[in-house]
């Protein structure tokens, strides 16, 4: 039986799922609640500070890269399967190209933006 390449997409999907489940909610709480409601100094996430942290460290850039790019693949995989399951099975190859292609495009874009900071 043909060997499946699914492990590549599934592992990216799973890693993205971990981030979507653990890291993104934390970030939402920090940026959406903690700071706007004054539980932390308002300028804790000021442009200058964040810019200095990101531009100064390759490690921070790599972490941000993972946190931003992996959820793209989580979305791509989920969305592709959802479309297939609602009846677009016939064009599943096209959907795969579109969904994973978008995720790859997003990943490249993220890399470029982070690189330039």
């Amino acid at each position: 039986m043909a060997k499946s390449n699914e492990p590549i997409f599934w592992s990216l999907f799973s890693a993205g799922g971990m981030i979507a489940a653990l890291v993104l909610p934390t970030l939402m709480v920090i940026t959406g609640l903690v700071i706007p409601h004054g539980f932390a100094p308002l300028d804790a996430l000021s442009y200058e500070r964040v810019h200095a942290v990101v531009s100064g460290s390759i490690v921070v850039k790599l972490v941000l890269f993972g946190v931003i790019a992996l959820p793209f693949f989580h979305w791509a995989h989920r969305f592709k399967f959802t479309l297939v399951d609602v009846g677009l099975r016939k064009i599943s190859l096209l959907l795969a190209v579109l969904c994973y292609g978008s995720a790859i495009a997003g990943t490249v874009f993220t890399a470029v933006v982070l690189w330039r900071i």
Partner: peptide, 14 residues
């Protein structure tokens, strides 16, 4: 694994 890890094995499961 030839069967389980193949495309029609586990990978359709969501």
């Amino acid at each position: 694994q030839e069967v389980i890890a193949s495309h029609d094995g586990i990978w359709h499961c969501t």
